[in-house]
Amino acid sequence: MSLVRTVLGDVAPERLGVCDAHDHLFLSTPRLPGEELTGIAAARDELVAFRAHGGGSVVQWTPYGLGRRAADLPALSRETGVQVVAATGLHQAVHYGEEFLAGLRGGLAELFVTELTRGIGPSGVRAGLVKVAGGFHVLDAHARWTMTAAAEAHHATGAPVAVHLELGTGALDVLELLCGELGVPPQRVILGHLNRSPDLVEQRRVARAGCYLAFDGPSRAHHSTDWRMPDAVRALAEAGFADRLLLGGDRTTASAGPGPAYLLRRVRERLESAVGEEVVRSMLIDNAARAFAVDWR
């Protein structure tokens, strides 16, 4: 049976309801000093507002070592009534120190599997996906290392692999590595940020391969491309790929724009005017239920 692994345990996919498929309740990185998302009260407020606008679940893509606050997620989920999915994985090397990364050599896949099956540290909260990242138009040695470990974790557990595409680039290289060389089924791969490089030809190629495309805005930092999202979604839906699309907020810093509720308060309406209610429902509910549901091993 396919189940979604939330911070409160495994649930039936339909229990996700309306899903913010890519966001961050907590995130701390030395690359963005002073912009940390660390406040529990603020996270609670975000979830309460999301719930008030019909939200049912939030998938937090914050990976290992970047302030996930996994131990705090179950209480937030219970208090707000919002299902939360946590991530394992590793971001780009620039988010970590060299000594930190050196300590993970030789055991990265094992770490991912442990967090997916036994829990994140003493919290016991199990992750429901693996998040990794590419670089700007390239996959460097760090990306290949982390994606190889993510593929091993997928093969051991069935977990989906979510990929940060730097400024929306490098999707085809990711597919060649993850799905070609490493054998991860495309339908288990979620590619984030393709809307930040609005190349409709590449987007169609990725969707045709069977991957999920996460359109994850709005963001002040990417406003130059965020406004093009409805056109990209329309083009993909008209090409027959409405079942491959997800929607997320991806608020990564304290000043990076609105939180999850904005997806439902403003973005949903804007998208419905462009592509219709049925496509947006698929993005928020049906596709998310399939993308994060796993026959766990």
Rank of each mutant, 00 (worst) to 15 (best):
S282T: 11
S2F: 12
Q203L: 13
R78N: 07
P160L: 02
H95E: 14
L104S: 03
G158C: 02
L111A: 02
Q60D: 14
E99S: 11
D72P: 12
E202D: 08
D226M: 14
P230V: 01
L66E: 11
V294Q: 03
L264A: 02
G180K: 00
D45N: 10
Y96A: 07
A162W: 09
L178M: 08
L27Q: 06
T157Y: 04
E79V: 10
R220M: 12
R266G: 07
V279N: 01
V113C: 05
S273N: 14
E202K: 07
V267K: 13
V267G: 02
Q187E: 15
G128T: 04
A162N: 00
A86Y: 08
R297T: 10
V275M: 09
V280Y: 11
A291V: 09
A12S: 13
K131W: 10
T253C: 13
T88S: 12
P74N: 04
G65L: 02
D295T: 05
G121I: 13
S2N: 11
A151T: 04
V184H: 07
F215S: 09
P218C: 11
D295E: 15
L27K: 04
G34H: 09
A274P: 01
P218M: 11
A141V: 14
G17S: 06
L172Q: 03
R266V: 15
Q92V: 13
R251T: 08
S197V: 06
R297S: 05
A149T: 00
